[in-house]
Amino acid sequence: MGLAEAILAIVIIVALEAILSVDNAMVLAVMVKPLPPELRKKALLYGIIGAYVLRGLALLFATVIINVWWIQVLGGVYLIYLAVKFFLSRQSDEVRSPEEEVRASVQQSFWRIVVMVNVVDLAFAIDSVLVVVAFSKVFWVIFTGVAIGILLIRLAAGWMVRVMESYPRLEQVAYAVVGWAGLKLTLEGWNLGAEVWLHNEALALHLPKELFLGVTLLILAVGTLWALRSSDRSPSST
């Protein structure tokens, strides 16, 4: 592979990572937001390190990792749990918010969040591994593109946290996307399990990628307009 061809492949892989990881960035933002500002950066930094290691292993053992269907189910169920917990906490004064839970045990929550950030990232990585491998078989080219994509996702997650602090209602939009992404991951894991473990593709429940992307964009568009038109802005934004 020539240099020009390698650069083109890297650009394509970075673009694919960005497109496939719109929901991933929002999930990361939601997961680290309960932490104090100084710990958010550390969580995202450790997440980047973990993501590089896990993505590298996923690429090296792609034929094995894509068959570990329960990772996607675990990640998906956890995201659904986060979304349900968030919306239920808004309905009951007795349920503590994620921020309050973190304040009660910051260090313990910090490492739990770091671990779950990496678990969820690996769950998201499984479907993207198949896509990027289709564009190049050269490991350093694939890994370079994926590494740049991971860095951009982390930067986007940090930016989203700051935006949600300025427009608090955007957090509800973010959790709606998180729950929707969790459903997608759970179904993908279930479908893979039906094929690999149960050997019965008839049990698969397919969610077309076009439908998932369309609903995601709809949630973001309508939710963002609702949040921005609201007068419920935090003092920090003024």
Score class of each variant (00 low, 15 high):
169 R>K: 13
224 T>N: 08
22 V>P: 03
27 V>F: 00
82 L>E: 14
215 V>A: 11
60 L>D: 05
18 A>W: 10
169 R>G: 04
129 V>Y: 11
10 I>D: 05
157 A>I: 04
79 L>K: 15
97 S>F: 06
174 A>H: 07
38 E>W: 09
115 V>C: 09
59 L>F: 06
199 H>C: 05
6 A>S: 15
52 Y>P: 03
5 E>C: 10
112 R>N: 06
36 P>K: 02
90 R>L: 13
96 R>Q: 10
130 L>V: 05
2 G>C: 06
194 A>R: 13
192 L>P: 02
203 L>K: 11
90 R>P: 04
53 V>H: 00
80 I>F: 00
75 G>E: 07
134 A>I: 02
4 A>S: 13
35 L>F: 03
119 V>S: 03
220 L>Y: 07
223 G>D: 11
147 A>W: 01
143 F>T: 03
230 S>P: 08
192 L>W: 09
68 V>N: 04
112 R>D: 04
46 Y>G: 03
191 N>A: 07
139 F>A: 12
132 V>S: 05
144 T>K: 08
42 K>R: 14
80 I>G: 04
59 L>V: 09
189 G>E: 08
146 V>P: 11
131 V>F: 00
181 A>V: 08
222 V>I: 14
17 E>Y: 01
198 L>Q: 03
14 V>P: 09
221 A>I: 14
10 I>Q: 06
21 S>G: 15
14 V>S: 12
219 I>D: 13
160 M>L: 15
43 A>H: 01
150 I>N: 14
147 A>D: 00
138 V>P: 01
179 G>Q: 08
175 Y>M: 15
44 L>F: 09
52 Y>I: 09
97 S>V: 04
54 L>S: 08
177 V>D: 02
92 S>M: 05
55 R>G: 14
117 V>D: 14
204 A>N: 03
108 Q>S: 09
41 K>V: 14
170 L>P: 02
175 Y>R: 02
108 Q>V: 15
112 R>P: 01
89 S>N: 13
26 M>I: 15
44 L>G: 10
52 Y>Q: 07
20 L>P: 04
238 T>F: 14
186 T>K: 07
41 K>H: 07
26 M>K: 01
113 I>S: 05
63 T>W: 05
14 V>L: 06
210 E>K: 09
91 Q>P: 01
101 E>L: 06
106 V>A: 09
4 A>K: 10
57 L>N: 02
34 P>T: 11
189 G>S: 11
19 I>V: 12
121 D>R: 13
189 G>T: 10
37 P>F: 15
207 L>T: 05
37 P>K: 13
43 A>V: 07
177 V>Y: 03
114 V>I: 10
208 P>Y: 01
185 L>P: 09
2 G>L: 03
219 I>R: 12
90 R>M: 15
99 E>V: 15
167 Y>E: 01
138 V>L: 10
185 L>D: 05
18 A>H: 03
151 L>Y: 15
6 A>Y: 03
90 R>F: 00
84 V>L: 07
97 S>Y: 07
211 L>Q: 00
67 N>C: 04
230 S>V: 11
146 V>L: 12
158 G>W: 02
89 S>T: 06
198 L>P: 01
222 V>K: 00
117 V>P: 02
114 V>F: 01
128 S>W: 07
232 D>N: 13
166 S>I: 00
235 P>L: 06
35 L>D: 07
99 E>C: 05
193 G>N: 02
116 M>S: 11
